[in-house]
Every structure is written in structure tokens, then in C-alpha cells.
């Protein structure tokens, strides 16, 4: 294995290892997009903690999950799942919406100190 191949393999390992390592400790939350509507429309997550959000687009069209409050933007391709990480966040309400259908595809992430489900 030459030097370039070694560096390449190392980089791939780092990229693959870093998220996997932290994902193991992260709580999972789910959102579904169907008929241009996100469900649940209110999602409670714990405060000051990083969480993993899995969004399943059940529609036949692409959508873009967007949130100015969370600084997140993610393409949701038809019939595919997308993963994003959010937090740690302070308690409060954080709005998100589907960029292509902002009137119907809307929701709130409620960050609470305890009793998050």
C-alpha cells in the first residue's frame, strides 16, 4: 500500500468512524412526511442534549427540511429516510418547515428540560 492509498484509507475510516462513535450514545427521534404534512407536528426532545432525527419522506416528491431556528437544511428524497443531528439546545420552541410546501409542511420541536418522549 503506497502512501496515498494509506492516507485515503485513513480518511475514509475517520469519516465513517466519527459519526458511528457518537451515534451510539444519541437518542433517536422520528418524523414522517406524508401528503406534505410532517407528523408529529410537535416533537419533544431533551434540552442540552444532542439527538438524532430520522425523517421519512413517504411522498412521491422531494422536499427540503428547513429550520432557521435549528440552522438545519436537509433534502428529503421520495420514499427515502434522511438523518440529521440537532442540539444541544436550550429549552424552547424551534420551528421547522418543508421548504417546497411551507404552508402545509410545518412543525415545532419543543425542547424540554425533562419528560421528553
Amino acid at each position: 500500500m503506497n502512501k496515498l492509498q494509506y492516507i485515503n484509507s485513513l480518511l475514509i475510516l475517520i469519516v465513517l468512524w466519527m459519526p458511528t462513535y457518537s451515534w451510539a450514545k444519541t437518542k433517536l427521534f422520528y418524523l414522517t412526511l406524508e401528503n406534505n404534512v410532517f407528523t408529529p407536528s410537535e416533537l419533544k426532545i431533551p434540552a442540552k442534549e444532542k439527538v438524532k432525527l430520522i425523517i421519512h419522506n413517504k411522498d412521491d416528491k422531494a422536499e427540503e427540511f428547513d429550520s432557521f431556528d435549528l440552522n438545519r437544511e436537509k433534502m428529503l428524497f421520495p420514499h427515502k429516510k434522511a438523518v440529521i443531528f440537532i442540539g444541544p439546545l436550550l429549552p424552547g420552541k424551534y420551528e421547522y418547515f418543508g421548504e417546497y410546501n411551507p404552508n402545509s409542511a410545518r412543525g415545532i420541536i419543543i425542547v424540554e428540560v425533562s419528560n421528553a418522549n
Binding site: 469519516v15 466519527m18 459519526p19 457518537s22 451515534w23 444519541t26 442540552k48 444532542k50 438524532k52 440552522n71 438545519r72 437544511e73 436537509k74 438523518v83 440529521i84 443531528f85 440537532i86 442540539g87 444541544p88 439546545l89 436550550l90
Partner: peptide, 14 residues
């Protein structure tokens, strides 16, 4: 940074 924090390659912070 936003992109890398979104996929947890860079740790997110407040």
C-alpha cells in the same frame, strides 16, 4: 460548519 454539525462530524454546540 452547519453541514458538518448536521451530520455530527463536528460536534454541535449552543
Amino acid at each position: 460548519i452547519n453541514l458538518l454539525q448536521q451530520v455530527d462530524i463536528v460536534a454541535g454546540s449552543e
